[in-house]
Amino acid sequence: MGAKPPFRFTGRHMAIIMVAFFGVVIAVNVYMASLATSTFSGVVVKNAYDASQEFNVWLDEAAKEKALGWSAKVERRADGRVAVTLKGSDAAAIPSDAALSGEAWHPLGQEADRVVSFRRQADGSFVSFDALPAGRWRLRLRLDGADANGRHVWRAQEFL
């Protein structure tokens, strides 16, 4: 029996390694890009520079809203209408004259954006006039109300 010839690394071996390596890289990139486009539910701005100039203003508004201590519990009722129960911290009850409004957007524009109007109920909660179609919705709420400390605007984003 003859001795086995030593292994020789050839151009064919290098070509197989290169094709396998870049094949894996491309497959992973395609998979990640498809996940990103199918699950993205963020907000796209028309001009990122202009939006960045407003960032500090948004932070200041958010700090004021957080200091109010208000929170919301949002749920979809069986009839498709949206019910919102608002709570204030011990020191900051929800003003009795508060008005709630909102906008609903569907991720990736699968449904048209909608303005959501609310009616205050006897128990202090709010219920939308119209039903939202089934599916996942991002709801941006705005509560305007005044108390002894002046007029306040509170915003929240919820998912349904």
Results as ranks from 00 to 15, higher is better:
114 R>K: 13
98 A>W: 01
4 K>D: 12
158 E>H: 14
127 V>L: 11
47 N>G: 04
113 D>S: 13
48 A>V: 10
121 Q>W: 10
44 V>A: 13
89 S>L: 06
61 E>D: 12
73 K>L: 10
38 S>G: 06
33 A>E: 15
86 L>K: 00
42 G>C: 11
118 F>V: 03
82 V>P: 03
147 D>V: 05
48 A>L: 09
7 F>N: 11
93 A>T: 12
46 K>V: 08
98 A>G: 02
75 E>Q: 15
14 M>L: 15
108 L>W: 03
25 V>E: 12
30 V>T: 14
84 V>I: 10
36 A>E: 12
89 S>V: 08
87 K>I: 00
31 Y>V: 14
138 R>F: 08
119 R>V: 13
83 A>L: 14
116 V>H: 04
42 G>S: 11
15 A>Q: 08
49 Y>P: 00
92 A>T: 11
37 T>F: 12
9 F>K: 09
41 S>Y: 01
112 A>G: 08
33 A>N: 15
82 V>T: 14
69 G>F: 06
12 R>G: 10
73 K>P: 00
128 S>P: 03
154 W>H: 02
106 H>E: 08
70 W>Y: 06
72 A>K: 03
136 R>Y: 05
132 L>S: 07
63 A>M: 06
81 R>A: 07
158 E>Q: 15
131 A>C: 01
98 A>C: 08
112 A>P: 02
110 Q>F: 10
21 F>E: 07
47 N>K: 05
74 V>T: 14
101 S>E: 09
57 V>M: 09
115 V>R: 02
95 P>H: 03
66 K>P: 00
95 P>C: 01
90 D>N: 07
107 P>K: 03
65 E>H: 00
159 F>N: 07
156 A>H: 09
60 D>V: 09
46 K>R: 12
72 A>M: 06
15 A>P: 04
142 R>H: 09
27 A>E: 05
48 A>G: 01
58 W>C: 00
33 A>P: 05
63 A>G: 00
54 E>Y: 09
20 A>R: 03
53 Q>N: 13
53 Q>Y: 10
20 A>G: 13
45 V>L: 14
141 L>M: 01
149 N>V: 03
115 V>C: 00
13 H>W: 15
97 D>H: 03
156 A>P: 00
56 N>M: 13
35 L>V: 10
4 K>L: 11
88 G>S: 06
159 F>M: 11
139 L>C: 00
138 R>H: 15
16 I>C: 08
75 E>Y: 02
101 S>N: 09
45 V>E: 12
35 L>S: 07
126 F>L: 04
56 N>L: 14
107 P>H: 04
32 M>V: 09
23 G>A: 08
61 E>F: 10
48 A>Y: 04
38 S>Q: 10
106 H>R: 07
141 L>A: 02
160 L>G: 09
